[in-house]
Design a binder for these strands. Structure first.
Lengths: 239, 239
DNA sequence: CGAAATTTGTTCGTATGTATA
DNA sequence: TTATACATACGAACAAATTTC
């Protein structure tokens, strides 16, 4: 009855495998699975064992428990090709210059420790803060926070609404910038990020911090931190 | 007895909070906690309840279970100050040339699809496969798989046991190599990787795929895939 | 080397609490 | 209010991995 072909280690694991297959094929985002009681009866196991199996799906981000309601399916179609076939590649040097971005936020706010250190300004002093969301084929892939120390650019920048920020700086402020340093790390998606990027809580994100200098005087022009869905994008670098 | 000050919701949560405090203050990486039986008796709860509390710490990546042994503490003091202060930086260009690596594996085996494509050989034909583990201050940070297409190097390479692979190639085979392409992605740690790197299951890993060419004739000399603890290492790139 | 003891992992059962419809 | 469904907690037993003797 159960698929025990690959790793027939435990009962709950076999049930988890079976449930994952069903969730990925015959259930859709927003659906609720049958109740734990029903599923336990169907598989002929104790409800604890069934719960342990569902735990696996919860940890994989495929379903969510809702007390009093049921087990919510989160499956997204691009969850299937876990292998890198369906990934997009992005050149690491193209940070901040994607024509497909939309602006989510544009404010002036005090710089925190990290931003102040990067921009070379005093902690708590004002800086321009933009947030953009980049999509590929309509799917959100990166949320990028940009900070700029030069407040004189604010009247112009607040008009930025979509497209490439670097192209905008060039066009409206005659400002050309180049990358001085790039730092790459990875971490799990937190609540806000998982909502923006439409992914599971704790899904892995690539984090790229870039410092951009003005070409003319080598002053810091922009500091950006991009968070990119690691299941969608791979960074490349040619030497 | 238990710290119920903040979220006194459940027994297991209160125990988890208490254990987390203790793990962060009085235990060190590599220690084993008292047995579940002892802890359950100490807190006056059933072993299931104690296990549910430890589950919380496992999910946070603070401890790891080892069947038959105990509960391993992984405390990383840099877990809370989410700022990257305590991180080590690694230049992205230094892939494969770390003097602190130890060899875990050295075999000849058929290349799978990915490796064959990278090395430019036929799928299923033999290649040299090395696996190394890199540590920083004794803490495992990267596991690296290296594949080399030239089987003539095997008699020499099988003697490689520790240190920098690239230095070894240079010294014993007069082979100098350079990076041609680098691809960077991120994913969650799977079971084997989390054990090797002593991190939580599903902890984020940076994955760097590098293609190295011989300097003399530009032939593919080595393809490597490194998996690095994202909580420990940050990749940097100066331009 | 092997048997026993220890420790974590899995599975059953039962009961009660809490959130939702 | 009642019924349903998930959440927590206790108890018992055995399996599997590791260490110890």
């Amino acid at each position: 009855m159960l698929n025990l072909s690959r790793h027939p280690t435990t009962v709950y694991q076999a049930i988890a495998d079976q449930l994952e297959t069903e969730v990925r094929s015959q259930w859709r985002s927003g659906d609720f699975l049958p109740s734990e009681k029903q599923l336990a009866e169907r598989f002929g196991v104790n409800r604890h064992t069934l719960r342990r199996a569902v735990d696996e799906l919860v940890n994989k981000g495929l379903v969510q428990r809702r007390q009093g309601k049921g087990i919510l399916v989160l499956t997204r179609p691009w969850d299937y090709p876990l292998h890198a076939q369906a990934r997009f590649s992005q050149n690491l040097m193209e940070q901040g210059s994607h024509p497909t971005s939309e602006r989510l936020l544009a404010v002036i706010r005090p710089a925190n420790t990290e931003v102040a250190a990067a921009l070379g300004i005093e902690e708590g002093s004002d800086a321009i803060h933009l947030r953009t969301l980049r999509r590929v084929d309509g799917v959100p892939v990166s949320v990028i926070n940009h900070w700029l120390p030069n407040l004189e650019h604010w009247p112009t920048l607040r008009a930025f609404s979509q497209g490439s920020l670097h192209a905008f700086l060039q066009q409206h402020l005659s400002l050309t910038v180049s990358r001085a340093q790039t730092r790459i790390s990875a971490r799990r998606a937190q609540a806000k990020e998982s909502k923006l990027l439409e992914i599971a809580l704790h899904a892995p994100l690539l984090c790229v911090r870039t410092l951009n200098l003005r070409d003319d005087n080598q002053q810091v022009a922009e500091y950006s931190v991009s968070l990119t869905r690691a299941d969608m994008i791979e960074l490349t670098l040619e030497h």
